[in-house]
Design a protein around this nucleic acid. Structure first.
Length: 440
RNA sequence: GGAGAGAUGGCCGAGUGGUCGAAGGCGCGCCCCUGCUAAGGGCGUAAGGGCCAAAAGCCCUUCGAGGGUUCGAAUCCCUCUCUCUCCGCCA
């Protein structure tokens, strides 16, 4: 239906192949080789320690092994060709045939060594996070994030606000106990008017992004392959955060629509004219929340399953930072229209996610906590995911395929938006006023 | 679930053991001719990786994936994946 959906045989991702040492994996291997110290200095801003020495050592080994294997292969090819030509002329080929035997043996052992060193390099590289953009503020954790702007004033209430759990139970719309009996902790059943509000929020977001921000709506798989997850950076490092489905195919439940949506362009070479691509999808997200025991155990803030409207952009590298600003305002537009007070935070080096080069979080005001809480996260992954996915565009200036830049952002988390609406729109009698933007 | 067919470059499509990374066509790019909403001619046009400071150059890999046979595989054998058609089933 569209140019970018064409199947590209050329671009079919072959990997890990015997000679694809770079393989488009992770950080740009060339800059890593050229200046490992600079990469190490950059990654140190995240608190990630890059072992330059061990990189150098297996890089040296890799080079030696690869050169030797290539040399042997070249000789074997030439030798085989000589055999063919001799036989064609009806000449004796026994000398070349004897050499061929030796070459076969030598090549087998050289290849084995090459495969081994490449596997080692690859798994090491897959564990390296993205480099950070220069503008990312320094810092170790959440507390060092920098507020960029703030919008809206928290309502002055002349009563003590309830949290969404109390409000939801009063209204008979949120049932955590029933969900616990059915599935366990960190699930919820939403009922009646609140279920409808939840649905309205999701549809509202989709409508705004498609009709006002130029996104194309997608319906996507909720079960994805390990390869797709590796493409966007969840695997191999963060398997513990995912739900793996017991099945022959080895499916995982998506932790975010970012995975299927961004992978839409994997193994593609896109024509410059189709960029930028802007997609929006409403999906559930499944997260094991391993390692968050005791955090936000009450309520809907942190669940194993939640709905999210996700924005994804595929852009030319030169445009990606402008796109990040725009994408962030697209997510903000939802909160503005819902008249929810929020602030925009630039995440510090220590808080930026694995695949991202720069991230803005949107935090919405929650009266019950008297705090701003994350409701969206907007990231520019630059070429990081594109390299892992082999997602490229043809740069007219060079005529060559180059990695695209990918961005994603929640626009916004539906479950948390429901929480925010309940809490910010509550009345003294425990009723909820429906935001004007949702009335029709 | 059962039966069959297929997978080659941006696209279509040849190619059953040896100068095949791959004929031919289309598309695209540059140039020439021509000069008006036409046509003709020439050349060029895959991706990934390595060596090199770099360019040039050289080399390796890739004809769905993996393995095997062979001195040598797009071509022969095995396994898998995906696509299409028919039957069954299902929303």
């Amino acid at each position: 239906m569209r140019v970018w959906l064409r199947r590209s045989r050329a671009a079919r991702w072959r990997w890990p192949g015997p000679d694809s040492i770079d393989g488009g994996v992770l950080l740009d291997s060339k800059s890593l080789r050229a200046d490992p110290q600079a990469v190490a200095a950059n990654l140190a801003r995240r608190g990630f320690k890059l072992d330059v020495e061990s990189f150098r050592s297996f890089e040296e080994r890799r080079k030696a092994v690869q050169v030797e294997a290539d040399r042997l292969r070249a000789e074997r090819n030439a030798n085989a060709k000589a055999v063919g030509m001799a036989k064609g002329r009806g000449e004796d080929a026994s000398t070349a045939l004897a050499r061929a035997d030796e070459l076969t043996r030598e090549l087998a052992s050289a290849d084995a060594a090459l495969v081994a060193v490449q596997a080692e390099t690859e798994s090491w590289q897959l564990g390296l996070p993205n480099t950070l953009h220069d503008s990312v503020p320094p810092g170790r954790d959440e507390s060092d994030n920098v507020e960029v702007r703030r919008h809206g004033e928290p309502r002055k209430l002349d009563f003590t606000p309830l949290d969404h759990v109390a409000l939801g139970e009063q209204l008979g719309g949120l049932d955590f106990d029933a969900a616990a009996r059915i599935s366990g902790a960190r699930f919820v059943i939403v009922r009646g008017a609140l279920a409808r509000l939840h649905r309205a929020l999701a549809q509202f977001m989709l409508d705004v992004h498609t009709s006002e921000h130029g996104y194309t709506e997608l319906y996507v798989p909720y079960l994805v392959s390990a390869a797709a997850l590796q493409g966007t950076g969840q695997l191999p490092k963060f398997a513990a955060d995912l739900f793996k489905v017991e099945s022959e195919q080895g499916f995982y439940l998506i932790p975010t629509a970012e995975v299927p949506v961004t992978n839409l362009v994997r193994e593609q070479i896109l024509e410059a004219a189709v960029l930028p691509l802007q997609f929006v999808a409403h999906t559930p997200s499944f997260r094991s929340e391993a390692g968050s025991h005791g955090k936000d155990t009450r309520g809907m803030i942190r669940q194993h399953q939640f709905d999210k409207v996700e924005l994804v952009q595929i852009v030319k590298p030169a445009d990606s930072y402008a796109a990040l600003e725009r994408l962030t305002t697209h997510a903000e537009a939802i909160l503005r229209k819902l008249e929810l007070p929020y602030r925009v935070m630039a995440l510090c080096g220590g808080d930026v996610g694995f695949a991202s080069a720069k991230t803005y979080d949107l935090e919405v005001w929650l009266p019950s906590q008297q705090k701003y809480r994350e409701i969206s996260s907007c990231s520019n992954c630059e070429a990081f995911q594109a390299r892992r996915m082999q997602a490229r565009w043809r740069n007219p200036e060079t005529g060559k395929p180059e990695p695209v830049h990918t961005l994603n952002g929640s626009g916004v988390a539906v479950g948390r938006a429901l929480v925010a609406v309940l809490e910010n729109y509550q009345n003294a009698d425990g009723s909820i006023t429906i935001p004007a933007a949702l009335r029709s």
